[in-house]
Computed example of a mutant assay.
Amino acid sequence: MKRYASYLPLIFSFVYALYPVAASAGQGVYQRVDSAFRVLYELNATPEKGIPHDLLSSCAGIAIFPGVIKGGFILGANYGEGILVVRDQKTNKWKGPTFLTMGGGSFGWQIGLESVDFVMVIMNERGVRAFLSNNATLGVDLSVAAGPVGRKLEAATDASLKAEVYSYSRARGFFAGVSLQGVYIYNDYDANQAFYLHPYLPSEILYGDIPKVPEEAQRLLTYLERFH
């Protein structure tokens, strides 16, 4: 990793250069929540290729990033907007969403531009807290691995699940487990205020007792309630 350190300024410059492209294809906060629901629903529409129910019933949270823009020419970068929902460990109810952005870079021969959907299943409370820290780096601050697929976890697979985040992606119409490394996660405070019409902090949304969750989020939360 050290030998790539000198390229980091170029990668970050590319990320920021990519931002206008992503913003032009960006979504309002309500559409972002709706798109996140559709991504998760479509991922699980084919159970044999979806997230195992055992994983969903035991995870601490889920981050969904619909339509992440990935681009590259030798150096690669990505930018996306998404949401995070968490499971209340006491009541087993789902709460949120709070809004996130993601960005990162990669090395190696690459060229082109594409839109990719990402789903990240967060397995423990430490992982959720890292997502909220505003400077989490997947693969550095959090262990991340390609997620298993299927109706149920095989016993051997279940015993080997040690990562804090299991990730899935969809490009060109199909989902697959993918290992995300070097991706940065940030809180989107402006989106939170636009959605809740109040400057709630992410911790207040996920762990506090806000008066009311906008109805646009209820479909996603209700859908997740079936996995228990």
Rank of each mutant, 00 (worst) to 15 (best):
Q27V: 05
G28P: 07
V29M: 08
Y30M: 11
Y30S: 14
Q31K: 15
R32N: 10
D34T: 13
D34L: 12
S35I: 03
F37C: 05
F37D: 08
L40N: 02
L40K: 01
Y41W: 13
E42R: 15
L43M: 10
N44Y: 07
A45I: 04
T46P: 00
P47C: 02
K49T: 14
I51G: 09
P52L: 03
H53W: 06
S58D: 15
C59P: 10
A60R: 09
G61C: 04
G61A: 11
G61R: 00
I62R: 08
I64M: 01
I64C: 07
F65S: 05
P66A: 10
P66W: 09
G67S: 14
V68A: 01
V68L: 01
K70N: 04
I74W: 08
A77H: 04
Y79L: 13
I83L: 07
V85Y: 07
V86K: 09
R87W: 08
D88P: 01
D88F: 04
T91S: 15
N92S: 14
W94M: 10
K95W: 11
T98S: 03
F99H: 06
T101L: 15
M102T: 13
M102H: 05
G104I: 00
G105V: 01
S106I: 08
S106V: 11
W109N: 02
Q110P: 01
I111K: 01
S115I: 07
S115H: 02
V116S: 05
V116L: 02
V116R: 03
D117T: 11
V119Q: 03
M120A: 14
M120E: 09
M123W: 04
M123Y: 07
E125C: 00
R126E: 15
G127E: 10
G127H: 06
G127N: 06
V128F: 07
V128A: 07
S133P: 04
